[in-house]
């Protein structure tokens, strides 16, 4: 069972505002989807997980300065900017 409160909590974790109607719709859908996911309860625990399929470990490059974006390029897609900086929302409430 998934409760509406759990849906609101998840929406808050994901930073997505949802309406009451959406919360109820998502609640029903989450219940049926999570119910389907529960098939994994049948799987044995004693298996090593695979997070990544390639046999690669710690791929590093040389620590040499290369070309990077100019300030103008970096700011090109921002709506809010001021004096060559991104302008973000208030973080102290």
């Amino acid at each position: 069972m998934v409760s509406v409160e759990e849906v609101y909590h998840t929406a808050e974790l994901a930073k997505i505002e949802i309406s009451e109607d959406e919360a109820e719709k998502f609640r029903k859908e989450f219940e049926s989807i999570l119910n389907y996911f529960n098939i994994l309860d049948e799987v044995e625990e004693d298996v090593e997980p695979t997070f990544q399929v390639l046999p690669l470990r710690n791929v590093f490059r040389e620590d040499e300065p290369g070309e990077c974006l100019s300030q103008d390029e970096a700011l090109k897609n921002a709506t809010h900017k001021e004096e060559g900086c991104f302008k973000g929302p208030r973080v102290v409430e």
Partner: peptide, 21 residues
């Protein structure tokens, strides 16, 4: 903030991010 769809008015970060998304 850095790119993509933005709201005209910057709000507190929680509200702003949640509304943009």
């Amino acid at each position: 903030v850095r790119y993509g769809f933005a709201l005209e008015k910057l709000d507190s970060w929680r509200r702003y991010f949640s509304k943009v998304r």
